[in-house]
Design a protein around this nucleic acid. Sequence first.
DNA 1: CAGCCGTGGCTGAGCGAAATCATTTTCGC
Length: 566
Amino acid sequence: MARAAAKSHVPADSSDRAANLRVAAVFGEIADLLEVEGQNPFRVRAYRNAAHELGGLGRDLAAMVAAGDDLTELPGVGDDLAGKIAEIVDTGSCAALDELHRAWPPTIHDVMRVPGVGPRRARSLFEQLAVRTLADLRAAAEQRKIRELPGFGATSERNILDALAGLLGTGRRLPLADARVHGERLLARLRAAPGVIEAVIAGSYRRALATVGDLDFLVTARSHNGAIAALVGAPDVVHVLAEGPTRATVVLRSGLQVDLRVVGRDSFGAALHYFTGSKAHNIAVRRLGVARGLKINEYGVFRDERRIAGRTEASVFAAVDLQFIPPELRENRGEIAAARAGELPRLVAAEQLRGDLVLVEVGDEASAVVAAAAAAARARGQEYLLIVHEVPARARAHVDWAARLKAAAAACAEHELAPLQGLELDISQRTCPDEHVDFVAARLSHAPRGASHPALLRIVGGAREGDAARDPTALVRMAVGGALAVVGDPARLTALEPELQAARAAGVPVVLGSGGEPGGGQASRLELAVSQARRAWFEAEAVVNSRPLAEVRELLAPRRQARRRA
DNA sequence: CAGCCGTGGCTGAGCGAAATCATTTTCGC
């Protein structure tokens, strides 16, 4: 089926986070070079922390600098880094980095990225073999010079060559849905291994991060267990990076890195909490423990030498007087204070959705797409379907919209589902071309090249078209009075976090849906959309399609007279 | 370098695990 050519009607907001990303990149590079230099680890960490915080910041640093905001209010930013942020925003770089570049080549941080090469070895390679780039590194290894260096050997040299040949982990992050395919298969294998009591996936996968860098398996086992052997012997393992009695690391053919840890039953909760992360969350929880005279590690919660908790995750939280915190919230973004106060959100769950959201393109046979989605929705016990018909400006005049709407409605009726139909207009279109729709949607970017449908859609409701979305908050401002639709298409569901957070903060409701692909998989797509909303602290109350049909119809109805209010 | 309360000087998460080399480095949360 021919897909319409990719069109982005709104300038990508990436241009507006460019300043944030630039600052994060500069700080990250400074951290690397300071580390190579052997500087104070806490100074290095300060740059890394700031890079991490600013990279995920939902506000535009350039705008903050322009407005003269106090940057030291930002987490991990003090007087010094505030000055450097302003400098980077204004000039694109900063003197501190330029200074480091006089001593170390900028490309040395590529060398550091090679698995098995850290700051110490990168420095040694540079100083003794003049290795500045990955090409230099390869040449040095091929000429068997690396094995001559103190601290290296023939094995290290071999491993470096393997890494450069791409045999080892690629370091790229995989969309959550792709990781799930690998994860479920390995999970089944581990569960079937001798001695294994329980096997789960922790890490960023469990936190439902939109992309994951690796898979963390946690296994509890009887004294003798075959989990390690089962992992290293799995069919698509191409490299074993580490293999010990309690831990193993392998690389799959896809380039995905997989870590496995084996702990005793009594440590399962503590280990699950620890290996689910995030790192920032763990540090914060551990700090609570220290304040209570407790030691928290992956084996349990200890008072002196005595284990007082750790068999379940809940027991770990309880030991530091916290409610159980859902994995999606464990990013140290306020969840700990909320859990202490007993004010955690009741996160939306997929089972609460009463209807799915489907996007239909002009090239599609609308009734077929809708029928597939309707069948899946019905199977989930849902009551209605929100159908969005794409309306590209050029095709508008040549399409019989009335017939398409009717066909889609019929397809719904066949599965005893109520249809709510809307048209998706170009952002520049100010008027609705058809009076007989239930709502109007506007496209909001986030469509990568090759993808026609966006992952984010503004359901307009009664609001007037605004200026093009230029940053997350602007995007959300546009949706005020309407709703933001989130489609769980794995390929398009990356980096929506700032928008979703901004939406929740602004009280903008969301519509969560599978998007409806005829090939099936609606359930996992729906759950993907839900998981991202959960990460942004959404409760069912703020999710439009958790409500009954009549309410949704009312909420989304175009209010054509309602225009600009004072 | 940030953050904290002893507002200038201190602490900062920190250890386990494994590889690899010969005692240190890397990596993970």
